[in-house]
């Protein structure tokens, strides 16, 4: 399938100047589960400090791509390098600091919200106790979660869990932040807040962010570049404006679906089959 990919060096509109930010290279990536290949020859070059959004319908392989970039899935073929380190190699995590915000939060259910956030700096002995407490409370403050510090994850709503997961990732002060559907299950205001947090992090610390999302507002507002993934193929990798104005009907239909009650899609599919 044809992919239009712009050169990140020339097209990224808001380059970051943070030396700590890392670039991500995805080369010839294929991922199969059994006999089913879910990612077909993916090539991507994500620049340090860039906000890169991966969009696509459910089941298109977005989350698998994100998990493969995070090193949680091993590529069947190809490789992912972050700041030049092959993420599949043991020990690469010590060289690259990344945080992944999981779709369902993945909070540690046996720990309070505070302990969830404090785990990373405590385990890695990054700061003293008071400093950790300050950083945790700062992160909770950004996401309006101060009152939740002593709650257990089971006491939180779905949206709060997601915000805690983002706060936990913030405390890690990563070079690369990966978000899996960060605004799903959130109300519009909180969704906008999260989008602003993602954009602000890049401005403040030049963080590289890779976001998997269905959220058009988030994708087309804060992204430097957007990738459209469908059925495991990259249809386009371009700036939000170019993707929005794409003449590819599949991309147009995905970004601006028309609800036609007289000729619904499921009936069209049924008729076609």
């Amino acid at each position: 399938m044809e992919t239009t990919q712009t050169d990140p060096d020339t097209e990224t509109t808001r380059p970051a100047d943070n030396e700590a930010a890392v670039g991500v290279e995805v080369e010839g990536l294929r991922k199969s589960f059994g006999d089913t290949e879910v990612l077909h020859d993916i090539n991507l070059s994500i620049k340090p400090g860039e906000i890169f959004v991966i969009m696509g319908p459910s089941g298109s392989g977005k989350s698998v791509l994100l998990k493969t970039i995070a090193g949680l899935e091993t590529p069947t073929k190809g490789r992912v390098t972050i700041a030049g380190h092959d993420i599949a190699e043991r020990g690469s995590r010590e060289k690259v600091h990344m945080a992944l915000v999981f779709q369902a939060g993945a909070l540690f259910n046996s720990m309070t919200v505070f302990d969830n956030l404090a785990l990373y700096p405590t385990e890695h002995r990054l700061h003293g106790r008071k400093e950790i407490e300050k950083k945790v409370m700062d992160a909770l403050g950004i996401l309006s979660l101060e009152d939740a510090r002593d709650k257990m994850p089971s006491e939180l709503s779905g949206g709060m869990k997601k915000r805690v997961a983002i706060a936990r990732a913030l405390v890690m002060e990563p070079q690369l932040m990966l978000y899996d559907e960060p605004t799903s299950e959130l109300d519009p205001i909180m969704g906008a807040t999260i989008s602003e947090v993602i954009a602000d992090l890049r401005q403040e610390v030049g963080l590289t962010s890779i976001v998997v999302s269905h959220d058009r507002d988030l994708s087309l507002t804060i992204a430097d570049r957007v990738a459209i993934l469908m059925d495991g193929n990259l249809l386009a990798v371009d700036t939000p404006d170019k993707v929005r104005n794409s003449d590819n009907p599949v991309i147009n239909d995905f970004l601006n679906p028309v609800i036609d009650v007289n000729n619904p899609r499921f009936k069209q599919k049924k008729a076609a089959s």
């Binding site: 993945a106 909070l107 540690f108 890695h124």
Partner: peptide, 16 residues
């Protein structure tokens, strides 16, 4: 339970 609900993956990404 930790594995199914991605807590183990979260630990791995935290390099713990």
């Amino acid at each position: 339970s930790m594995k199914v609900y991605n807590e183990i993956d979260a630990l791995v990404t935290m390099n713990i």
